[in-house]
Design a protein around this nucleic acid. Structure first.
Lengths: 218, 218
DNA sequence: CAATAGTTTCAATCATTTCTGAAAGTCGAG
DNA sequence: CTCGACTTTCAGAAATGATTGAAACTATTG
């Protein structure tokens, strides 16, 4: 696989890709090394062993080992073995949408779920405040509404995420592509009365109305 | 506004909310203080001045000032003034969806756009590699595909984000709610209302099958 | 325009996260 | 069981990022 004197420009492109991915790391709340290792595995498309990675990225064995383990936990890097070789090799998931599904799945699990749990707890505390009497009922009501709004948002987010992640959720990939691809509808009558719209896309982006979702398999 | 002897349980709920939000901060790539200030402003629903915030959150003036400025930049906290008071007050955007639209808008601008720019640059480098001859053409082709897949994903993401953020994008809010709300198995037709013959693509949410559009490859 | 009230900046400090490297652990083969 | 090849762990070291506090700045007021 690895050409002895490799194609230098491609290698440069790979290095740039790794660097760019590494930059993103901060914003996504993972360590730079983790992102770089993942980038390297993705962009080379090869199965690499720990030493390959250490060499190319100039990092310590410990760092490589731990980051790799995290990547495995996230499910975006997979173990691979080569016959007659005792070393472990690693490869990145090559399908971009599968990869992001894995990321969404993990982030829901690690961030949204605990957050929802906490918000519910807080709601309970607040309800107790109500029963305890004492406070201004209007203030309590407003407080509760704020909590509920937030809760509703994250519940929608979670459901949406689950849809995206679920095996059947392939659909959402297509839905996403579609929503992104479809020509945006110029808004004409924003809020003026009933809407009777021409035969166009399934989801009316303006009103959110859903027309004739007709599981049409062809 | 501030009741002299405030309702203690509500205050506890607020503190918990602030703490939870602060925890999330790491995952979202912003500082804890920033998240806490935002949480405080959101959950109290009040207009607070720098000193209020310093007191309640036990942070320094400098920290408060800088964090507040960032929140203003993100557009999720707004300046407010009280008549006859020289101080500046701050208030969090109270509509949750508006707030997240602002966040999405900023993240696209700060993360996705630069990423896309870099990816395009990298593509150019790679193309140069092709013209320079030398390398294995098959390898180059595979490399280019990997780049293109990634690019396509983020371009979809960006378009989707813009839709969500745009004024007309209110629709996406509804679409999101809908997608999240709709029972996964029953995608027969919109419960009621106008039924229009879809002349255009139709998504089968169940299988992901798409009529009239190329659903994409793996 | 001087005094005052409020806000911003920034070098220094502090806290947290990430990384290293060597030691301990695992596992298969002989 | 012992050796050797490989992997994981973990206590510091190093790097990075957040926070402070006091000085500089800006705007308002009498």
């Amino acid at each position: 696989m690895a050409t002895p004197a490799d194609n230098l420009p491609i290698r440069e492109a790979q290095d740039r890709f790794v660097a760019v991915w590494g930059q993103m790391a901060g914003a996504w709340g993972i360590s730079r090394t983790m992102a770089e290792i993942h980038a390297l595995l993705y962009i080379t498309g090869e199965e690499l062993c720990t030493d390959d990675i250490m060499d190319r990225l100039q990092i310590s064995r410990g760092n490589a080992s731990m980051s790799l383990r995290s990547l495995l936990d996230w499910g975006i890097v997979l173990r691979a073995h080569k016959r007659g070789d005792r070393k472990e090799y690693f490869a990145a998931e090559q399908d971009v949408w599968t990869m992001f599904r894995a990321i969404v799945r993990e982030r829901i699990k690690r961030e949204v779920d605990p957050l929802l749990a906490s918000l519910h707890e807080i709601k309970d505390i607040s309800a107790a405040a109500g029963r305890g009497g004492g406070g201004d009922p209007a203030a309590l009501k407003a407080h509760t509404k704020r909590l509920d709004d937030m809760l509703a948002f994250f519940e929608t987010l979670e459901t949406l995420g689950h849809r995206f992640v679920s095996p059947a959720g392939r659909g959402l990939r297509v839905a996403a592509t579609l929503l992104a691809t479809m020509a945006p509808r110029q808004s004409r009558r924003a809020s003026s009365g009933v809407v009777v719209e021409p035969a166009e896309p399934v989801i009316d982006l303006e009103t959110g109305a859903l027309d004739g979702v007709d599981g049409g398999r062809s």
